[in-house]
């Protein structure tokens, strides 16, 4: 393996997530299943400190924030906002790594940490604009979303389970997994149809993961959006006769 933490030449395949903020109900099931799978999977466990005490905390690869969004002329709305590694095309966490522990795979664009090489300097976490990386307090190495690399290519799992744990478990189908480098993939079509966007494009990271915005709310103070009406053509045959007969009755 070439361990130089320069970014690989951009590949065609860009695996990632599409997260639908219109649908997410903020249940945290994705975070729980992520922790459950990844604490026993790829690399060292995801530690918890003082798990049953007064100040529990631990390492998570996925966290769900909740925001309040207030339009200028309408009441506030709540948006649940799951956030995990975005597997950026220009991943600054990779190029700052002094040891080669942090790398981006050329074949599918997944950003990973080789834990045995990680010195725990934390610079990659400083370089990430999104807070996608957390230092494990016990293993003392950097942890991040692997896109469940030990599920998606795992031939011992049934086909339906070969998606990241967060996607598999989401009860609302707010999370989708696929190849965002393929414009015809299901996820790319969703992004195109719904106006999927990048988080904080100012950071210059070109994330692979995309977010689908909440759909516009219905507004009681405005006329409801009109549903398209069926074309009222001239009926023929028996129904046409019935229509005309009823018209004549007034």
């Amino acid at each position: 393996m070439d361990v130089v933490t320069s970014l690989p030449a951009p590949g065609q395949k860009r695996l990632g997530l599409v997260i639908d903020l219109d649908i997410c109900v903020g249940c945290h099931a994705c975070a729980v299943n992520c922790k459950e799978w990844n604490t026993g999977g790829h690399g060292a466990p995801l530690a918890d400190i003082d798990a049953y005490g007064a100040r529990p905390e631990g390492t998570w690869l996925n966290r769900i924030h909740t925001f309040e969004v207030t339009p200028k002329d309408a009441p506030a709305q709540i948006v649940h906002f799951p956030k995990s590694c975005l597997h950026c095309q220009d991943a600054p966490c990779v190029t700052v790594c002094p040891t080669g522990a942090s790398y981006k795979r050329a074949e599918d664009g997944i950003v990973l940490v080789e834990e045995d090489r990680c010195i725990g300097c934390g610079l990659c976490a400083w370089a990430c604009p999104y807070g996608a990386r957390e230092m494990d307090p016990v293993a003392r190495v950097m942890k991040k979303c692997t896109l469940c690399i030990d599920r998606i290519y795992n031939e011992h799992l049934p086909q339906i389970d070969r998606v990241p744990a967060c996607v598999r478990t989401c009860p609302a189908h707010a999370r989708h997994f696929g190849d965002l480098g393929d414009p015809d993939s299901e996820v790319s079509r969703k992004v195109a149809a719904r106006g999927g966007y990048d988080l904080m494009p100012q950071a210059g990271t070109r994330p692979v993961n995309k977010y689908l915005p909440p759909r516009p709310k219905t507004r009681p103070d405005r006329p409801a959006p009109q549903l398209p009406q069926a074309e009222a053509g001239e009926a023929t045959g028996f129904l046409g006769w019935l229509d005309r007969a009823l018209e004549r009755l007034g």
């Binding site: 903020l21 390492t59 309040e68 207030t70 976490a125 904080m200």
Partner: peptide, 26 residues
């Protein structure tokens, strides 16, 4: 907060609840 969440097109964005009640590495 608007660009970080991408929700600025809808309106003003404010954190309502952190993911966890405790602290974390970040």
């Amino acid at each position: 907060a608007e660009s970080a969440t991408g929700l600025g097109a809808i309106g003003r964005v404010r954190l309502l609840e952190r993911p966890h009640s405790g602290a974390n590495y970040l």
